[in-house]
Every structure is written in structure tokens, then in C-alpha cells.
Nucleic acid binder design. Structure first.
Length: 455
RNA sequence: GUGGCUGUAGCUCAGUUGGUCAGAGCGUCGGAUUGUGGUUCCGAAGGUCGUGGGUUCGAGACCCAUCUGCCACCCCA
């Protein structure tokens, strides 16, 4: 057999121990908050039936779905003429009936549609799992990545929005990340598009607006005009829509009528602030969040002072499960961008001193002869609740201490011939370099004194 | 999916118009210190120059293909 060079599939990554600790820290924080707000865990299979996924993400999205080739003699199922003449994409539809999930929302919708009559509504679930996209990778964009979603379905109450904003506030406060939560409403955006004379071309209006961060307000205005929207309308809009802190009264005046989107935003902001005055929420009439499926509130979370793009986003949708034949289930959800949160925390130095130690103690024997004693001591330490690693015997002390140092284990317990005779061990503090000889029973009995991690 | 850029030791990178150009620093390993890490000193190992073709007397350097990473578009987390 030829040796092959080990390599990763394009756009995928290993998560080594250090990365896993960082990811776990973030995921546990989010999970704890989700559960505190009564969201329940859900996991769905990595693969779905292809027809469950296709047509849900638009033409562009369908192209990015990873298909799974049928098992068995799939070629037999296709007539030879089709096989030779069909386009690859058409052929793929004939020989693939499964695919890797593209996001967590559609599988969730499938789950809700399938279990409609046994779910107590409103149903609140969170889901943290990998998804796959056949995209071309770039920095911070992968073909396999985790999504971290919380949705509540079966309630159109705006109090759900308020609670989701509280979750955002609490998670980022716990992680110590300074963020701004931008909030807007699609109904309001609709009204603005109408004002700009976009008419039927709401999508065009939004796509251009979405580029604001990238191209700046002058270009947005230019593109709107190029698209043929009403110059007067755009002029009126652009007087305030790009302001740092637009307030809702301004908007109300600008629209010259009370608008449902404004009322919703007011409700949410008013109640959110009465519960959590410190919630870092800011109304932003330019926030659009993509094209499809959001129908009401939309949010997006950005980190203050770090350019990583958004670290979270979400919004309300009217009809989650309609495509699966179950109508009238509204929902609202949020999502956390794990990879970007991690990047932001690294840049802000928020992991310093936060990651767990591999173990508190390294027990090392000077020769094989002391290994039984060393193993016994390690066991006693573990039984006493001290996380302990036993270093294999027979190696030089130099090696074991270097190992402890390199892997940041703060204490070494050394046992050699002399110590074994006296029933003692040497306890070495790796940080200070100090070491003392203590009776073995004392080591266990006074573990809290000996293994203080405070410097 | 479209158009670009990139790839030399584990890591970060040198390598001049194709002709001793296969190198440096860091790291790793060994020794100084056969019962002591982090400092210091000495020494060693590691690369078919991403891969496969081609041009040439001769290619790490040129050409083609392919894979990877990255960038723009598209889209998005």
C-alpha cells in the first residue's frame, strides 16, 4: 500500500486541545444561558433527505449543498442515455437522495412539522451542531462549521424578542465581550422601501442597503438611484437613515404615519430597557439581514472595537413549517457565530487564565521500582478530588519535569528510592521552583494547603 | 460557480537573469547537570523545495495540470 500524505479535506479543520478548551468555554456559557431561559436541547442527523433541503435556500444555496452519493449500483437506476447526456447537476439529482445539512433551521422546521401534535407550544429549542456548505473557503469561512441556534416557535408575542435580547446581553456579558446589538424590523424596512419608490423591488432595495458596511453610504445612495428609485424618496431617507443614533420619533415623522414596525420596535425596546437598562441595544434602520424568510424583528450583534463581522444574528419569521405542510407556526430565533466569537476573544485577550489546566499534579517515579508507589499516590490524590497525571516510570527526572513545565502542570510529586523508604514524597511547585519533603498521608490530608493555585 | 495570488525543514521565512542554493532563526532531540523544568553553553537530527507532467545539457526557480491556503465577486456563519 502506498503511503499517502495525511491532509484535511478543503475547508475543514481539526480542533486541537487548546482550541477545544476555548470552544468549550464559549459553548458552555451559551448553553447555560439557553437552559436558564428554558430552551431545550435538540440534535438532528448530519444528513437529511435531499428533497428536505433543496429549494429552501434559493438557487445559490442549492448549489452549496453537499450531496451524498447513493450506495449500491446507482448507475443501474439511470438509463444510459440520460447518464451520458444529463448535466452534472441534473444527474446528481438522480443518484443522490441524501445530503449533509446546510443549516440548523430547516432540519428544525422538519422536526417541528413531524412532531407538531406532541409539542407543547411555544416550543423553545437550542441546537449546537456542525453544518456543511460546498462553498469556496476563505479566512473565517469553512466548509464545515458549527452553528449555535435558539428558536422559539408557536408564539408571535414580542416578549419572545425581549427574552432573546436578554439572552444575547447575558451571554456576551458573561464572556466579557463588549458588543452592540443592532435591531430593526422588516416591516419598517418595507415602509422605507416604499418611501424610496422601490415598489415591487423590495429585494433590490435591501440588497443594496446590505452593502452599506462594505461600500459606504454614498455608494448605497448612488446604487439606489441607478436602480431607478425615486430621487425625492431617497433624498428624504438619506437625511436620517445613516445617522449614528436615529430615534424612532424621527422615523415616525419621516414616514408620516404610524407604522407597525415602529410600534413593535418601541414595544421591544421599552420592555427590554425596563428589565435590563444596560442591554447594549441600538436601533439601526439600515440593518437588513439577508433576503429571505425574516418578516418582523431582525437583530445582529457586533463586537465593539474588533473587526470580525457579526458574532450573532437572528429574527422573526411568520411561517417556519409551511413548506412541510404545517401552516401558521410563527417563530423567532437567534444564532451565535462561534468562530467569530472565538476570534474576537483571542484578540481581546479574554482567554488569558481562563482555560482549564490539564491536571493539577504530575506524579513521577525515579525508576520502575517506585511506580507501584507512585500509582498508589496518584490514585489517592484522584480519590481526594485532585486532578492527577501519572508519568511513566524509568525516565529521567529531567524529562518528567520538562513535561510538567511544557504542559503547564503546576505541581510535581516526585518519588525515588529514598522517599519510598521513608514514606515521603517531594512536592515541587513548578511555578516557584520550591520543593518540600512531606509524609505521604500528609500530602493527601492537607491537599488544600499544598495545592493552592494562587500565586 | 467566476477571476486572481500563493505553497522551500514542525513553525516563521531567505534563496539574486534557470548552473555547489538546499539555508537561517525558532522549535525538537542529545550532552554539559547519570535525582530536578523554565536561563546559559556545546552538538545533532529533520526537506524527493505541495503533487504530477513538460521545456532544458541542467529547474526550488520557466510552462501546463492538480491539490491547499488566501483575496475579490457571489453568497453567507
Amino acid at each position: 500500500m502506498n503511503k499517502i500524505k495525511p491532509t484535511l479535506v478543503q475547508g475543514t479543520r481539526d480542533y486541537g486541545p487548546e482550541m477545544m478548551h476555548k470552544r468549550n468555554l464559549i459553548i458552555h456559557t451559551i448553553k447555560d444561558v439557553f437552559e436558564k431561559y428554558a430552551f431545550q436541547p435538540l440534535e438532528t442527523p448530519a444528513m437529511e433527505r435531499l428533497d428536505t433541503l433543496t429549494g429552501k435556500y434559493g438557487e445559490e444555496g442549492d448549489r452549496l449543498i453537499f450531496r451524498i452519493l447513493n450506495s449500491g449500483d446507482f448507475k443501474k437506476e439511470v438509463d444510459p442515455q440520460t447518464w451520458n447526456q444529463a448535466e452534472s447537476s441534473a444527474l446528481a439529482a438522480l443518484i443522490c437522495e441524501k445530503a449533509l445539512r446546510y443549516d440548523l433551521t430547516v432540519p428544525f422546521a422538519r422536526y417541528v412539522a413531524m412532531n407538531m401534535y406532541s409539542l407543547a407550544l411555544p416550543f423553545k429549542r437550542y441546537q449546537i451542531q456542525p453544518v456543511w456548505r460546498a462553498d469556496r473557503p476563505q479566512k473565517g469561512r469553512f466548509r464545515e462549521f458549527y452553528q449555535c441556534d435558539a428558536d422559539v416557535v408557536g408564539s408571535s408575542s414580542l416578549w419572545q424578542e425581549v427574552e432573546l435580547l436578554l439572552i444575547y446581553t447575558e451571554v456576551f456579558q458573561k464572556l466579557n465581550i463588549p458588543v452592540t446589538i443592532r435591531i430593526n424590523n422588516r416591516k419598517l424596512l418595507n415602509a422605507l422601501a416604499a418611501k424610496a419608490g422601490a415598489g415591487e423591488r423590495f429585494a433590490t432595495f435591501v440588497i443594496i442597503l446590505d452593502k452599506l458596511d462594505k461600500i459606504g453610504k454614498e455608494e448605497v445612495i448612488k446604487e439606489w438611484l441607478n436602480a431607478g428609485f425615486s430621487p425625492e424618496g431617497i433624498d428624504a431617507l438619506s437625511r436620517w437613515i445613516f445617522d449614528e443614533n436615529p430615534n424612532l420619533e424621527q422615523v415616525r415623522e419621516a414616514l408620516a404615519r404610524d407604522e407597525e414596525g415602529i410600534q413593535e420596535l418601541e414595544f421591544i425596546l421599552k420592555h427590554l430597557r425596563s428589565i435590563s437598562a444596560a442591554a447594549p441595544v441600538r436601533f439601526d434602520p439600515t440593518l437588513a439581514r439577508g433576503l429571505d424568510y425574516y418578516t418582523g424583528t431582525v437583530f445582529e450583534v457586533v463586537v465593539q472595537g474588533v473587526e470580525v463581522g457579526s458574532v450573532g444574528g437572528g429574527g422573526r419569521y411568520n411561517d417556519l413549517t409551511g413548506i412541510f405542510g404545517v401552516d401558521g407556526i410563527p417563530g423567532v430565533g437567534i444564532s451565535f457565530g462561534l468562530d467569530r466569537i472565538l476570534i474576537a476573544m483571542e484578540e481581546l485577550g479574554l482567554f488569558d487564565g481562563q482555560l482549564p489546566l490539564k491536571s493539577t499534579v504530575l506524579v513521577t517515579a525515579l525508576s520502575e521500582d517506585q511506580m507501584p508507589d507512585a500509582a498508589k499516590i496518584a490514585t489517592q490524590l484522584r480519590n481526594a478530588g485532585v486532578s492527577t497525571e501519572l508519568y511513566p516510570g524509568g525516565a529521567r527526572l529531567k524529562k518528567s519535569l520538562a513535561y510538567a513545565h511544557k504542559t503547564s502542570i503546576p505541581f510535581a510529586v516526585i518519588i525515588g528510592e529514598n522517599e519510598a523508604k521513608k514514606h515521603t514524597v517531594l512536592l515541587k511547585n513548578m511555578h516557584s521552583g520550591d520543593q518540600i519533603e512531606v509524609q505521604t498521608e500528609q500530602l493527601i490530608a492537607r491537599k488544600d494547603d499544598f495545592f493552592q493555585l494562587k500565586k
